[in-house]
Amino acid sequence: MNIIVCIKRVADTSEAEIVIQRGGQGLEEEDFAWGINEWDNFAVEAAVQLKEQHGGVVTAMTLGGEDDEEVLRRALAMGCDEAVHLCDEAFAGADAWGIAKALAAAVRGRSYDLLLCGAVSGDAGGGQVGGFLAGLLDLPLVALATCLEVGSGNGGTGGVARVRHEVESGLERVVEVDLPAVVTVQTGINEPRYVSIRGIRKVAGAEVQVLDGAALGLQAAELGSAGARVRLEELFLPPRGEGAEVLEGSDEEIVQRLVEMLHQRGGL
């Protein structure tokens, strides 16, 4: 069971103040805590668990700048066997399509049964890369997996996976999919392990393979902002619209007011 898991380093803005740079092309990043995309962390755990059950090799792959190597090292410490870093200044400004094209180029020629991605990313959040990969590599896709089991399968020579995934109205479906396949992983599919000190120790000397655009056989026009199909015009803070009537005062006053409102407008 060889698995490639595609991951991304993203900013966690949950505790940060959002300040848009002048010109609206980027955010002030000083306050950001960076780390692996939450969905991708579940994908790495899913890959490592499958390897622990069935053997094989798990390769973690990311596209990004030098700092982004940290998520690969993290994936190795969690139990991935190999890491591939698609790193080239020309990748800057890539959209989901560009990321998927570069990943697809790196994946082609490797032997794998499963290609795992996080279902969406915490930053752009379009949920496209997995589906693009399936399209580019002509593989079947299962999006939003909440349970993943595999039968046989050894390096792209067949086998099937049973995947439970989310559809509409709170329903889930169980499908059987031929391998190799692309599966995008939803949060909650497992309980991702911590990166342990022993894990870090084990991979202290591990090599991360670095591939640039030329190594992937991609032309300059296909890379980064040059190859982006979706371009950013402007970032802005969401209009507050009508928004909530925000209650002010001491806790005591606020709660008193709230009880009144629940009574009058909520019909309590």
Partner: peptide
């Protein structure tokens, strides 16, 4: 070094979790 940063992050994640 990279390994030391890995350790720092691992400790931070563990403490956060």
């Amino acid at each position: 070094d990279k390994g030391q940063k890995d350790i720092q992050r691992a400790a931070r994640d563990f403490a956060k979790g």
